[in-house]
């Protein structure tokens, strides 16, 4: 087993991939909710990814990612046996579980991959977990079996109704609350706009709501300050103060704006990479 070697690669849908990677130093202490920072190769960026799971004995961690940016597109080109240049972690604070009896975890799209270790980790911890998985359509559904096994109830919804119920995650959550389900906490993991709406709903019903944030970051240890987000009117660092925060206190519009900053530059560079190498720098 080489350092940071991809031991297993599995496509979950057209766009989302599950990797099992050798990283014993990370695996020995990893907890649900924590993340790693990786670098594909010498020329790559450092990007944060929440761990989808880990196996302390095997010395491996699981990453589930959607190929949406430059780095994740490069990762798509990596195969079993290839190695990442770097993986460091576990970073950030683990998911808070103490004292919780029943929670509802709401996952949206790729966010479901990140909700998976949180929901199943809470379930293993003895917390009753209702899981709402939302996807655009049937083709994008991932991890259904895993969620069914690892939580108490799985509610599957799609925007277009092509699978499960036709609903947005917020509709489903509203329905569950109005049917009398009582939750100590709601956990939202997904696109910021979904998290924002889930948190608003939770606030209206006086339920605690935790959101797992993603942000640009470089070192992940509080040195660069790139991941700062406004939480309750104060600047917090997602890397060391988070990644999970009281979602009702997050300045979502600011977060969404900051997370989009490099997208344009990246889109331009992405075209550039593909033109130059056919997108396969890793195998040059």
């Amino acid at each position: 087993m080489k350092r940071f070697e991809i031991l297993k690669k599995r496509k979950l849908n057209n766009n989302i991939t599950w990797l099992v990677i050798s990283a014993p130093l990370v695996a020995r202490k990893a907890k649900p909710g924590q993340f790693i920072i990786l670098r594909t190769d010498e020329f790559g960026e450092r990007i944060p990814l929440t761990m989808a799971g880990h196996d302390e004995k095997a010395g491996t961690i699981d990453l589930i990612y959607a190929a949406v940016g430059r780095t994740t597109m490069l990762m798509d080109r990596m195969e079993e046996g290839d190695c990442f240049a770097d993986i460091v972690g576990p970073l950030g604070k683990p998911t808070h579980m103490e004292g919780l009896k029943k929670v509802c975890v709401v996952g949206g799209g790729t966010g479901n991959a990140l909700a998976y270790p949180i929901a199943t980790g809470m379930h293993r911890h003895g917390i009753k977990v209702d899981m709402i998985c939302g996807f655009k359509n049937k083709e994008l559904v991932i991890l259904e079996e895993e969620f069914r096994k690892g939580t108490d109830h799985l509610y599957m919804v799609t925007d277009d109704g092509s699978y499960g119920e036709k609903a947005f995650t917020t509709d489903k959550l509203k329905q569950l609350i109005s049917e009398g389900h009582v939750y100590d906490e709601i956990v939202a993991v997904g696109p910021p706009i979904m998290m924002k709406l889930v948190c608003q709903l939770a606030k209206e019903h006086g339920i605690a709501c935790v959101a797992s944030l993603t942000a640009y970051m470089i070192d992940g240890t509080g040195m660069c300050g790139g991941c700062r987000a406004i939480i309750g009117g104060e600047n917090k660092f997602v890397c060391v103060d988070g990644p999970e925060f009281d979602g009702t206190l997050v300045d979502w519009d600011e977060l969404i704006r900051r997370n989009a900053y490099y997208a344009q530059q990246e889109a331009h560079d992405r075209a550039h990479v593909c033109r130059l190498t056919g997108g396969v720098r890793y195998h040059d």
Partner: peptide, 19 residues
């Protein structure tokens, strides 16, 4: 301070020097 083109020197220099 959280406007898009504001960053710490640490971030700016790390992007340029380390990265």
């Amino acid at each position: 301070e959280n406007l898009l083109e504001v960053c710490s020197a640490n971030e700016y220099l790390t992007r340029i020097n380390l990265m």
